[in-house]
Nucleic acid binder design. Structure first.
Lengths: 189, 189
DNA sequence: TTGTTAGCGTGTCATATGACACATTTTTTT
DNA sequence: AAAAAAATGTGTCATATGACACGCTAACAA
């Protein structure tokens, strides 16, 4: 699965692809299990194979805010903590049973040092993630809450089904009750 | 100035730094001048030396939304368009007289191909931009409009002074009138 | 199985916000 | 310098939203 993900970024010689995959280890976590506790140094990049992760933080007033719901087939980490080796305030827990691949920081740098082609390969992935992140942020700026919900429903209906509504509401930046009203309006129409 | 910006990302041998700088050309634009017209292919990365740029788009209903106000000492482009050579719907105009450095795509790739150290150097910049982008997006999620305004005021008071309030309001995701009420409350206190 | 907890649906109500309208000020143009 | 245009300050008002409260159902644990 990770192999297919990598292939989407261009072809690599077999031995290099094998090396890349050899640096990752598959793990599992039960529903409710904590992947990243608060104030922790994040030391890995994760590739989610199945299930959903809940990445969240708290406001000054103690309200929990969903920053991202990590879906299958996505590479994810708390980048700032990973890059600068600082502790991350935010937390990440499993919303369902999950299966994922883990790439440790040391192995990440081993890959980048291995060869120019591998280094370029990784950088292509980083560039694409940045590009998607910017597009996502810009869309969020120009869409209403309702549009964001419809967008999510269209792009990731399974997530909307599997993840609690309260978390979806927080993700798109509104309250549980308002998301309700939106859904009622939509089913009525 | 660009030289200082680069130095912030680590040291480079003199000849490599000179090569890097030689690929950039300084340009100017008058207030109101268009840097990127709508539906245009963006072919450069820009480093702003002085002045402010207005990067914006339009919603389905034709309302103009500010996506970013580009301040001095920042590298910026419409990344998706630059990377994938697709036209960008969004536009960018000068809010004041501006001076900037331009790095063309061809020169960008020339730098990446020149040497491993230069390629790594550029990638470090990309990684940092990504990291900052994620932090910015997360902060936006967990802050109220008023907190975002105070944050902007603290981190970039000059921008708040130089840029029209209506644009600041759009940037932090509210109306001109609401930003007004916020400012009135703040000056009263 | 039973008890407990977490999540969902819905109603009421105070309030912050956006839309509109218009006066005032500042900036730009002629 | 005068006129025109753009940006800003401010008031009113309808409305969408968040907060709270409560009942219900589904999931989970003892």
């Amino acid at each position: 699965m990770l192999h297919d993900y990598f292939k989407g970024f261009g072809s690599l010689p077999h031995d290099e692809m094998d090396f890349l995959l050899s640096q990752c280890t598959t793990k599992e976590l039960k529903k409710g299990g904590v992947l990243i506790p608060p104030n922790h140094h994040v030391d890995s990049i994760y590739f989610l194979e199945s299930g959903y992760l809940h990445y969240f933080t708290y406001t000054e007033l103690g309200e929990r805010v969903t920053l991202k719901v990590v879906s299958p087939n996505i590479c994810w980490t708390i980048l700032d903590s990973f890059m600068n080796q600082t502790p991350a305030e935010d937390e990440c827990v499993a919303l369902t049973d999950v299966r994922f691949c883990e790439l440790k920081r040391s192995n990440y740098f081993a890959i980048k040092d291995k060869s120019k082609s591998l280094s370029d390969f990784i950088n292509r992935i980083i560039e694409q993630i940045l590009s998607l992140k910017v597009i996502e942020a810009n869309n969020k700026s120009k869409m209403t809450v309702e549009e964001r919900y419809l967008d999510l429903l269209q792009k990731n209906p399974e997530m909307v089904r599997e993840v609690p509504i309260s978390i979806i509401a927080s993700l798109i930046g509104t309250s549980r009750e308002t998301l309700h009203r939106i859904r009622r309006r939509l089913t009525a129409a």
